[in-house]
């Protein structure tokens, strides 16, 4: 494992900790898209089907369990916890995420590394992760104001994707047979979705002002 991948995994973990902290400390999930969180839970469940069949490292298995458990915990909070549930902005979170799930699954049926149950679900999870942030970005754009923790959550998620791209470049240069088109192309698409957000995040950071996204 190289430093870029480790940095990517850590910023990913940090983003989830920030989100859990926000929900736990404020007992509120305002500004957070439940649809994005549900998509992430599906992403992790579909991707880590290999948890019991392919052992890579203790670190790898541990992180898989953490990602599955934390994503389910967030969805659980937003759906079941009485106070958190009340703060959910249903009217702002209108993205039709079922279409994303269907489209990604169809794409996975066509484009995969191998036509097996696990490989199709792995490809599906890669495609779905690439677009899972869309309901969150749309929600932020619709609400205009972004609170600090939600802004940091999206920032760390974007940083995680950026580090993964550096990781692939590093692996491509140092490993003789590193070619993973599905993951790399989807990863670049996913990172590009954050470009706009990053731009406004940087502006607000530079001016030391509250993050605001244009309508």
């Amino acid at each position: 494992m190289n430093i870029f991948r480790l940095a990517g995994d850590m910023t990913h973990l940090l983003s989830i900790i920030v989100l859990l902290l926000k929900i736990y400390a404020t007992k509120s999930c305002s500004g957070v898209s439940r649809k994005t969180q549900e998509l992430y839970a599906i992403v992790f469940l579909a991707r880590y089907l290999d948890l019991f069949t392919d052992f890579i490292s203790v670190y790898n298995s541990f992180m898989k369990v953490v990602f599955i458990a934390s994503s389910l915990a967030i969805v659980w909070c937003m759906r079941v916890h009485p106070m958190v549930r009340r703060s959910y902005d249903k009217e702002l979170d209108t993205f039709r995420h079922y279409f994303l799930i269907a489209a990604c699954f169809l794409l996975a049926l066509v484009l995969h590394e191998k036509f097996t149950f696990q490989e199709v679900f792995w490809a599906f999870s890669i495609y779905l992760e690439a677009v899972a942030i869309l309901p969150q970005l749309v929600l932020l754009q619709r609400s205009g104001n972004v609170d600090n923790l939600t802004g940091q959550y999206v920032f760390f998620l974007g940083a995680y994707r950026g580090f993964y791209i550096l990781n692939w470049i590093y692996r491509y240069l140092t490993e003789p047979r590193f070619t993973r088109w599905i993951a790399c192309v989807s990863g670049v698409v996913q990172t590009a979705l954050y470009a706009d957000f990053f731009y406004y995040y940087f502006i607000s950071w530079k001016n030391n002002s509250k993050l605001k996204l244009p309508a």
Binding site: R47, N60, N167
Partner: peptide, 10 residues
């Protein structure tokens, strides 16, 4: 040779 390696990333 088109054989998928194990997915070692998260």
């Amino acid at each position: 040779d088109g054989q998928p390696e194990t997915h070692d990333e998260l």
